[in-house]
Amino acid sequence: MNNTKKPNFIILIFSVLLGVFMAGQFKQNIPILAPVTLRAIQTTKNEINVLNKEIQDLNKMINDKEEQLKVLESIASGDENIIDILIDELEKNRTVAGFQEVEGSGIVIKMQDNMAEGAFGEEYDLDIVHDIDVLRIINDLKGAGAEAISINGQRILSVTEIKCGGPIIRVNGKGLVTPFYIKAIGDPKLLNAAINAPNTYSYALKNIDQINIETTVEDNIKIPAYRGRFNFKYAKPIKEGD
């Protein structure tokens, strides 16, 4: 009797213990644990960064709007004249849009065809400055944070085309000939690096195709205003709330 009862009793006790453990596990309400890979961590990090950036931008926007609100309040209370404020705003917008002559530190790039006799590759095509060369250099300048760019006095804007026109290149509908003087306002060091650093496009142009590219860093460059007119026929602004 005792022999058969005792094991059952012990098993019962330990089963209870096991049940208690199990209940503890049940109470955890464990979510499904997916293995976290390094890639997932990286992705999440990126997402967090993007979100933080967004938050920063939004905060900036809030500050801007608050400033605007202050201006409007001061108008309402009669401290400032609305015409002055509007003129200020207009000046700012004209500068941003490129309708204002601007000056500042930057670099001047002179590009000229390869004039040497025994030209590279014995092919004229490789010795001349093409529209695409200018375009790429301007793209590099923009990438380096150039705030205003002009070629031979033609302001480069979002609508500016740079097209091959045979012996000339066409910019803003005007024909330009070599030598091309590209002026760019921005951080001179960065702009210089974008043009002269090894493995940039213009570095290759200079050292492989032997195109004459000279850059000078200057403290005070004047870049003229855009002289054309914007006439948007098709693009219409979307009103907020539409």
Binding site: S15, V16, G24
Partner: peptide, 18 residues
């Protein structure tokens, strides 16, 4: 016995606040 024990244990465990 084992089944009874486990059931009893689960009940006890769910009632205990640990």
């Amino acid at each position: 016995f084992a089944l009874m024990g486990i059931l009893a244990g689960v009940v006890i465990g769910l009632m205990l606040p640990y």
